[in-house]
Every structure is written in structure tokens, then in C-alpha cells.
């Protein structure tokens, strides 16, 4: 089936500016949006720039805005895209480097700022694992699966208005460690979480939940972390 892809092309002189360009693609059975982008790049216009790697939704390279919603191009079937024209844009609120390629260095810096590693001051047992009950382990399900694609943070209206906001992805990662029964780092992380650009900035708009291609729930993580921080203070 023939479909039109309306793709954002940045201005080579000034990547902040640009315009849409239309490409017609003969879409094959079971093609994803990434298959269509590859077809354009390989057969029509080699200058189109976008990131991709694993092509099955685990590496997080190809997050972009497709028909107004953030998604992974590699996972979205073209047949599931509505309308005669499919619009493809770079992730909102990240600086565009070129076409669909955005600068994620600030996004990763935020992720690193919440100390995304296990903090535990006790010496682990020799020649054995630390024990963790399945129930305790379950507490971090829905957080460690995050692929850091940036879809959530890019969709967050609070982040649009205040780029100092930590953003849902970094807070979800904080949750992954704070709620890990092996971790003792809440206090160290509070400095980043418990301030006006941290947990309390979220307005529970839920855009991040809608945007997450892995069906994770950063808003819930933010709310639960708030409760944890408050109960810690009492």
C-alpha cells in the first residue's frame, strides 16, 4: 500500500529551523515506520538522518514523534498509523542536531545526576548473592525495564516549560534504586529529588505514561517516591 510520510528536515545551516518534506513509500506487509524510513533513506534520499539500531524496541535509539505521539519507529506498524499522511518529527524539547536526530546529552546527564547505581555500604557476602525475596524484587518491576529512549521526558509539559526539571525518566530510574530492597541511598539521592526541580515539579499530567513505548508508569513512580520521601521525613 502506498503511504505518504511527511518528515521534518532541518535546515543544514541552522538546525533550529527546517520544514517538512513528503515522501511516498510503497509499504510492504508487516512494515514498521522504521522499515519505511530505511526505504526512503536507501532508495529515495540518502541525506535523511535518523538513529536506529536494534529494530525491536530494546535499544531506544529510534524514539521520535509520529503522528503527534512519541514512539519507537521500529515498533510501530505502519498499518496502525491513522490518516493519509504520516507525520514524523524529532522528539520535542530536545535540541535538534539534524532532521530526526536530537541531542540527548542533557537527558543522559539528568539520568546520571540521580546516582543510578546501587548504594549499599555493607560488604556483600563472599561467594554468594545477597538475598532478595520475590516480593521485594517485584517492587522494582515496571522501572528497571526503562530503555532510556527519552519519549517520556520529551512529552512532559513541565519539562517543556522548565528544562531544569529532572524529568520522568530520571525519576523513574531513581525509583528503581530507592525501592530496591538492597539499596541504602535514599538520603544521598534526596538532594536531587527533594527540591523544586525534582519530585515536586511534576503536575501529574500523565503524558509520560501515554508516551512510554514500554508501557511503564513514571507518574506512579513519582507519586510513590513523594510518599516515601514524606514518610522518611516524619
Amino acid at each position: 500500500m502506498r503511504r505518504t510520510f511527511r518528515i521534518w528536515r532541518s535546515d543544514p545551516q541552522d538546525p533550529k529551523r527546517g520544514a517538512f518534506r513528503d515522501y511516498e513509500v510503497e509499504v510492504q506487509h508487516a512494515w514498521t515506520v522504521l522499515d519505511a524510513l530505511n526505504e526512503i533513506k536507501w532508495r529515495q534520499d540518502g541525506t535523511l538522518a535518523f538513529r536506529r539500531s536494534c529494530r525491536h524496541g530494546i535499544c531506544g535509539s529510534c524514539a521520535m514523534t509520529i503522528n503527534g505521539k512519541n514512539d519507537l519507529a521500529c515498533e510501530l506498524q505502519v498499518s496502525a498509523c491513522k490518516g493519509s499522511v504520516i507525520t514524523v518529527e524529532p522528539l520535542k524539547s530536545f535540541p535538534v542536531l539534524r532532521d530526526l536526530v536530537v541531542d540527548q546529552s542533557d537527558f543522559f546527564a539528568r539520568h546520571e545526576s540521580i546516582k543510578p547505581w546501587l548504594i549499599n555500604h555493607r560488604t556483600p557476602p563472599t561467594d554468594k548473592e545477597r538475598l532478595q525475596s520475590p516480593e521485594d524484587r517485584k517492587l522494582i518491576d515496571g522501572t528497571w525495564e526503562c530503555i532510556l529512549c527519552g519519549s517520556c521526558t520529551s512529552s512532559c509539559p513541565v519539562y517543556w516549560s522548565s528544562q531544569q526539571f529532572l524529568g520522568p525518566a530520571a525519576i523513574l530510574k531513581a525509583y528503581r534504586y530507592v525501592f530496591d530492597s538492597r539499596d541504602e541511598g535514599l538520603e544521598e539521592r534526596l538532594q536531587m529529588l527533594d527540591n523544586r526541580f525534582g519530585l515536586w515539579r511534576c503536575h501529574t499530567i500523565f503524558n509520560c505514561v501515554e508516551a512510554c513505548p514500554k508501557a511503564l508508569n513514571p507518574t506512579e513512580a513519582i507519586v510513590k517516591l513523594r510518599r516515601r520521601v514524606v514518610s522518611e521525613k516524619i
Binding site: W117, L118, P124, E129, R130, Q132, S133, P134, R137, I140, W144, R176, Y177, D180, R182, D183
Partner: peptide, 8 residues
């Protein structure tokens, strides 16, 4: 020990 979230 490095924090890997193994199933249990």
C-alpha cells in the same frame, strides 16, 4: 553485588 536486578 553490582546491583543487577535478577529474578529470584
Amino acid at each position: 553485588h553490582l546491583g543487577m536486578p535478577f529474578s529470584r
